[in-house]
């Protein structure tokens, strides 16, 4: 498995945890911690799977996702959304924005791994 995963998340400890989990399973993990230029980073890296936090400095994850879905290049990009807000409306918003998967923090490592595996194109 040599899939590329891009993690956009502002909490350094969480980035490190996800990176460790995925790298250990053979994924190439790139990280980014700012919302503002997130879309450019996604285009530049064109990952196989994108893990996207909702609350990002500069721009909300929903916003970024909506822009990605409007672009033909990233229209079908598998996106796993992470949020620390566990309310049902957050899930709805994620779905409406076009998230492929939605996960509430704190998550189990196995869950994340499984989700990335499922989302990654074969």
């Amino acid at each position: 498995m040599a899939g590329h995963v891009l993690v956009i998340e502002d909490e350094p400890n969480i980035i490190e945890a996800i990176k460790f989990i995925l790298s250990r399973e053979g994924w190439n993990v790139a990280t980014h911690s700012n919302g503002e230029d997130a879309v450019d980073v996604v285009r530049a890296k064109s990952p196989d799977v994108l893990i996207l936090d909702v609350m990002l400095p500069g721009r909300s994850g929903y916003d970024i996702l909506r822009e990605l879905r409007g672009d033909a290049a990233t229209e079908n990009l598998p996106v796993l959304m992470l949020t620390a807000r566990g309310q049902s409306k957050d899930r709805e918003m994620a779905e409406r924005a076009g998230a492929s998967r939605f996960m509430t923090k704190p998550f189990s490592n196995a869950e994340v791994l499984e989700a990335v595996r499922a989302l990654a194109p074969v």
Binding site: N13, I14, A17, F20, A84, K105, F107, N109
Partner: peptide
């Protein structure tokens, strides 16, 4: 509060699992 609590919890859970 949820966000503020879940964020450190996420790190704690993830690394404790590791």
């Amino acid at each position: 509060i949820s966000h503020e609590l879940r964020t450190p919890m996420t790190s704690i859970r993830a690394f404790s699992e590791i």
